[in-house]
């Protein structure tokens, strides 16, 4: 427990100093607020940007940090100090999930999400953040360095983050996007009559598939620093 707490605390101390990662958690609420107030439909903007936050925030930040710890050997010293790989990942993911939750809460506030919708959106949002974290862990382990992690996570972020937006303009894309967790999060936020059970099943299914990716990356590359 002390190792998880120490890594969580270190990550929280590092985040304000890592501007490129910090921006991931600030820009979506900021964009929802600005664009929503300029163009109107603030609740739609908030839902859309919430799905983008969930797709990108934990995934990119965890991928970046794991790759950085691997490249600069910080992870080696943690492992040598007796930190288990799962403790390292839980401590790190915990920090980024917490920051994502705060960012998501501000999006819900901006979009005026309340009542039953808020409860359902919070549940699918949290599940989505976990799925995104698993994907980030897999990318971070797989990447040789920070540059490679960015090269993998950026297109993934674009696909997952923008799929719900483009799905509105293309029927084929909409059918595909339905099976992606960011789309389900957006649907639950924006539609009070959305099929909540179906959303949960899709997101849980996504998490299982991503967990398999994670297991493959971990088996192939390990997490030893």
């Amino acid at each position: 427990m002390s190792a998880i707490k120490a890594i969580f605390t270190k990550q929280m101390a590092d985040l304000p100093k890592n501007m490129s990662v910090l921006l991931l958690f600030i820009m979506w609420p900021l964009m929802a607020f600005v664009i929503g107030n300029l163009m109107g439909y603030v609740e739609i903007q908030a839902g859309m940007f919430a799905s983008m936050l969930i797709a990108s925030g934990p995934m990119v930040s965890i991928a970046n940090n794991v790759a950085e710890d691997n490249e600069y050997k910080g992870l080696r010293f943690l492992v040598m100090a007796g930190v288990k790989p799962w403790q390292y990942l839980v401590g790190m993911a915990g920090a980024f999930i917490l920051v994502s939750v705060l960012s998501l809460a501000s999006l819900f506030w901006i979009g005026g999400v309340t009542g039953d919708v808020l409860l359902r959106a919070s549940i699918v949002g949290l599940l989505g953040l976990i799925a995104s974290s698993i994907l980030g862990g897999a990318v971070g382990i797989f990447a040789k360095n920070v540059q490679q992690a960015a090269a993998i996570s950026t297109p993934l972020m674009m696909i997952l983050g923008f799929a719900p937006m483009f799905a509105a303009a293309n029927e084929t894309l909409a059918r595909i996007a339905e099976f992606l967790f960011p789309m389900q999060v957006m649907v639950v936020i924006l539609n009070p009559y959305a099929d909540f059970t179906r959303a949960l099943i899709v997101i849980a299914g996504n998490a299982v598939v991503l967990l398999a990716f994670f297991a493959i990356a971990y088996k192939k590359k390990g997490l030893r620093g």
Binding site: K5, A6, I7, T9, K10, A13, F77
Partner: peptide, 9 residues
């Protein structure tokens, strides 16, 4: 902060 991490561990 670097040493605090290891003090915690």
């Amino acid at each position: 902060e670097n040493l605090n991490l290891f003090a915690g561990i």
